[in-house]
Design a binder for these strands. Structure first.
Lengths: 308, 308
DNA sequence: CTGTTAGCGCTTTCAA
DNA sequence: TTGAAAGCGCTAACAG
């Protein structure tokens, strides 16, 4: 059953024939108990019905599977408490490693993993208070280049719809925005900067606030896909009204980008690649055991996409 | 640890204190091996980066979790072979039950589950050759009412973009379409009926074919969300060109519907509810053991949504 | 090359 | 009320 090379071909044939006849399936539970490894990796995602994270998960799963590992996906619902629960669950399930898109920038609770010699790789977001491998994207550079491009196009009145302030992605994307303006000597108009929570409704609401200003921006950068969805919906619903002649730029490039009918610009993340790299790093840690080197933080590049 | 009522409060306190101090976590693997149940359910989905199936999964997970069960999601990639592999995997992982959105209308390979006394509940699609509980929607009725509504609006030149011919959903949606036309005495224009594969690209391609006809339809019914995405993209990209003045109606109501700026109509499925009911049926089967009754097939209602 | 045995961490049963 | 022992299905180590 386990391809032991010492077994003769004839015996193997007999065994396999019996397996077939009896419908025998190995009991992975018993095997895992004995072997002290489950060949299973956990993925803790802040959302499960979310194209971004699920595409990352797909990247993870593909490379895990081709290495004989399985993936368990679970949902922290953007809550640190739920995240802690899922983490405990994963420890109890004896997964061999963990890929986590953290729900916040707090990382202390991940320390339990260390006690159980469970390697962790973070994706998308980074945490404080816990050092581990991470696969992120170049948020600062991505936004910087996007805004630079828009400046080149002649846009000057820049609005910004930010993400949940506690998340590294939100902070970095804002930093890129600010840097781009500053480098061109453009002042930041505080009133054009609003913070949401990365979800659709906040994008809609904040866009409505910006459009309602007596002197609205002519171009708004939105910090992620879902807020962009909300912002776009506002502009579509109020098309033609004063204040809505706004050019949208946004982090993330997803299916809907091709279908809004608005000219806009997006920053595409290499989602599958993020998952793939994370899985590779994790598998390396798993095989290394305790004698690995310092945490590796990778930043993958993003790509500017212009939708005409 | 297991809340045995025979244990005295003082002993329990001492035990819990030690647990805390030592950082003890139960080993779910060992527990499962002994208990012969894992408190785990598998969900085999034809796609993992798919809002529809993942929203269903969310419904499943919520109700499982509140019953102390966990969910393992895996991906059959719309392939029967992969589906068979995942099924084997789940058997080996000793899940207590299975929720499956089947990759095809063939069901024979699910028989292995019977040998291992694994209950299965199908969702979204139904199969032949294997009897089991299922939670589906009223595809025929949903499309029927949608087309009826459009007939009432005065549309007469109906096109149809169908899904993968092997899937029950595709067949049922076509049946509803045909029935609605027939009941009003409207003939089916064969040339306006095209079959895709439920994916975006086929929607785009088939819509381009329909729009290019010398005498194109004035209204097209698209059989699911992703093909609608493709069809919509075609119409948006070619807005104003001859043949593109087409009213779109589609199965599934997702984010897309609010950002295209096109007037259209959708049929919303109760995705979370599907998952919830499937989990409920499965949990019932699990607790019943072998002495359950005949398969239960539920059809949940859909809802017509008009986007102006 | 094959067969036997101990033990992974837990639960359950029975004895103290 | 607590402690001891057996065994879930598997693998690894060792004996034959």
């Amino acid at each position: 059953v386990n391809n032991d090379p010492r077994i003769s071909a004839s015996t193997r044939r007999k065994v396999l024939a019996s397996i077939d006849q009896l419908g025998y399936k190995v009991n992975a539970i018993a095997r895992s108990l004995k072997a002290r490894r489950t060949l299973t990796v956990g993925f803790i995602s802040p959302e499960i019905a979310n194209d971004f994270f699920m595409t990352v998960a797909q990247g993870v799963e593909n490379t895990l599977r081709s290495n004989g590992y399985n993936l368990i996906v679970c949902n922290s619902k953007e809550s640190v408490e739920e995240e802690r629960d899922r983490l405990e669950l994963m420890v109890e399930q004896c997964v061999d490693g963990l890929i986590v898109a953290p729900a916040s920038n707090r990382g202390e609770h991940f320390r339990v993993a260390r006690d159980f010699h469970l390697p962790i790789v973070f994706v998308d977001r980074y945490v404080e208070g816990f050092e581990a491998d991470a696969v992120l994207v170049d948020n600062v550079g991505g936004v910087y280049r996007a805004v630079q491009h828009l400046l080149d196009q002649g846009y000057e009145r820049f609005g910004f719809i930010g993400g949940a302030p506690g998340l590294s992605t939100a902070q970095e994307r804002y930093a890129g925005f600010l840097q781009a303006l500053t480098d061109r000597g453009l002042p930041l108009e505080e009133n054009w900067v609003r913070y949401g929570d990365f979800h659709t409704e906040s994008g809609y609401r904040l866009m409505s606030e910006l459009a309602a200003l007596p002197h609205p921006p002519s171009c708004v950068f939105v910090s992620n896909y879902f807020m962009n969805l909300g912002a776009t919906r506002y502009l579509i619903e109020h098309r033609g009204e004063p204040g809505t002649d706004i050019y949208l730029a946004s982090f993330d490039d997803m299916d809907l980008s091709s279908v809004t009918g608005l000219r806009h610009l997006t920053i595409a993340q290499p989602m599958t690649r993020i998952g793939q790299r994370a899985a590779e790093l994790l598998l390396r840690r798993i095989s290394q055991g305790e004698n690995g080197n310092d945490p590796i933080v990778e930043r993958l590049p993003t790509e500017l996409v212009i939708h005409e």
